[in-house]
Design a protein around this nucleic acid. Structure first.
Lengths: 226, 226
DNA sequence: AGAAAAATGTAACAATTGTTACAAATCAAA
DNA sequence: TTTGATTTGTAACAATTGTTACATTTTTCT
C-alpha cells in the first residue's frame, strides 16, 4: 500500500477520524488485498456474492445494471475514496445488485468480510463510522420513498420545498440541483416538473428566479403536502 | 426484567443466536431501562433525538406521522420483539422520523446508544445481527425504489413478478399479499393494478387464479420490465 | 465578449393512472 | 353452511403525467 493510497483511505468516510498511522496498523492486523483494474473491466458481477468490503483507492467505478432487454443503466458513479455497496456486505442475500465496472484505471482495496467484522469490533470509531454510513443511506432512501408516495407532483414538490425550508431555515431557498436532477429524484419527467412549478407560480405559492425559490405562502404549501 | 421478557428478547432479530443466560448477562453489563406505557401514549416524538435503542418487550406501537394538514398517517405497526427504528440510531441527524405511539399496553427496553455500541463491540454475534438488520432494510428500500422508478405500472408488475420468479424458482407463483398490499407497495391505486393485471392477462403474458399467478411468456415479461 | 452547450419554459396531444361506484367472488368465523 | 366481511373485477369518467418539439434563457468555456 502506497502512502498515497493510505492518505486517500484516511479520507474515506469509513476511516474518518483515524490517523494514517493507526490506519496502516489496523489494516496490517486485519489483512487486505489491493487489486488493480484496467478500464472497462468488470470488478464485481451482478448476482455474485459480496464477501469483501471494497474501497476505491484510485480511479473510479460505475454501478451498471443490464436490464432484461439488454439496455445498460448506470446506477451510480463511485470515485476514490468511496466504499462500494457497503449496505450489501451484511445483507442476508448479499449479492451485488449491479455490475461494478471500472470506468478508469483503478486500484481497489479488498477486505474480507470476517476480517472487516473484526476491524469493526476492535475499533469503536470505525464501527461508528460504518453504522453511520449505512444508517444515513437508509434514511436517505426512506426519505425518497416518502416523496414518491405523495399522491401527485404538486404534493411532492411542496414536501420537497418544505424540507428544504426546514434545512435552510429560510423562505428563500437556494436549490443546488437542476430541474432534471429534481425530476429524476421525484420520479417524473422534466417537462411535467416545469409545468407544475409554473402552476404553483400562477397560484402565488412560490416565486422562481433561476435557482432561487421563494416560498410565498407556507400555509397553502403545507396544505398541498398531504 | 422478567423471564418472560428475556425470552421475548432472545427471539428478537438483534439477539438471535444468544441464549437467555448470555443475553441476561450482557444486558446487565451494559445497562438498560424498562419503561411501561399505557395505550395511546407517545413513546417518542417526531423530530426528537433518537439516542436509545428501543426494543418492544410486550404490546405494540405504531409509527405515526401527522402531515401538515393534520391528517394521521400510520407508517408501520411494530410488535414485540421488534426493534424500533434501528436504522435511525446511528444516522447523522438521528431524529425520529415519526411519532412512536403505544397502540396497546406495552413495555419497552431502552439501551443508551453508547452502551449499545459497547455491546456491539463486545459481541460479534450481536454486531453481525445488527448489521444484517439495517443492511437488509437498506436493501429492501433500494429494491422498492427500483420498482417505483419503472416508467409505468406494467413494467413494475413485470419486474415484481420476475423477482418473485427468481425467488421461488417457478413459473407458477404463489402470492402472499393482497392486491391492495401490492398496489401500496408499487405506489398505485388498487383498481389501476387490477386493470393492468387484466391487460396482461388479455395479452397472454400471465394467468391468474386467485393468489396464484402463472407466467406464460417470460421473454415478453422481460421485455416489459425495461 | 462571444460561441457552444446546457438548462429551462411552454404547448399540443397521447398515454397512463386515479376516482368512484357497484357487482361478483372469496375468505373467515360462528 | 351460512353470514358477514374482505377482496377482487370492472366500467365510465376525471385528472395527472408523459412525450415530443421547439424557442428561449442561462451557464460554461475559450
Amino acid at each position: 500500500m502506497t502512502s498515497q493510497h493510505l492518505s486517500t483511505l484516511s479520507n474515506s468516510p469509513i476511516f474518518r477520524g483515524l490517523s494514517t498511522d493507526e490506519l496502516a496498523k489496523s489494516l496490517q492486523e486485519v489483512g487486505y488485498q489491493v487489486k488493480h483494474f484496467p478500464p472497462k473491466v468488470i470488478v464485481a458481477e451482478q448476482g455474485s456474492a459480496c464477501n469483501f468490503l471494497m474501497l476505491i483507492l484510485s480511479g473510479s467505478v460505475q454501478g451498471q445494471m443490464i436490464d432484461y432487454s439488454g439496455k445498460l443503466i448506470v446506477i451510480e458513479e463511485l470515485v476514490a475514496p468511496m466504499p462500494v455497496a457497503p449496505a450489501f456486505l451484511y445483507a442476508d442475500r448479499n449479492e451485488f445488485p449491479v455490475n461494478v465496472v471500472a470506468t478508469s484505471e483503478c486500484c481497489i482495496l479488498f477486505i474480507a468480510k470476517s476480517n472487516f467484522t473484526a476491524l469493526l469490533q476492535g475499533h469503536a470509531a470505525i464501527l461508528q463510522n460504518y453504522l453511520t454510513i449505512i444508517s444515513n443511506r437508509s434514511k436517505f432512501l426512506s426519505n425518497k420513498i416518502m416523496f414518491l408516495n405523495f399522491k401527485n407532483l404538486k404534493s411532492k414538490i411542496a414536501a420537497f420545498l418544505l424540507q428544504k425550508q426546514h434545512e435552510q431555515q429560510s423562505l428563500q431557498l437556494r436549490l443546488t440541483e437542476t430541474q432534471q436532477d429534481l425530476a429524476d429524484y421525484l420520479g417524473v419527467a422534466r417537462p411535467s416538473l416545469a409545468r407544475v412549478l409554473k402552476e404553483m407560480k400562477d397560484e402565488q405559492l412560490i416565486e422562481i428566479q433561476g435557482k432561487t425559490v421563494v416560498l410565498l405562502n407556507l400555509a397553502k404549501l403545507k396544505q398541498e403536502a398531504l
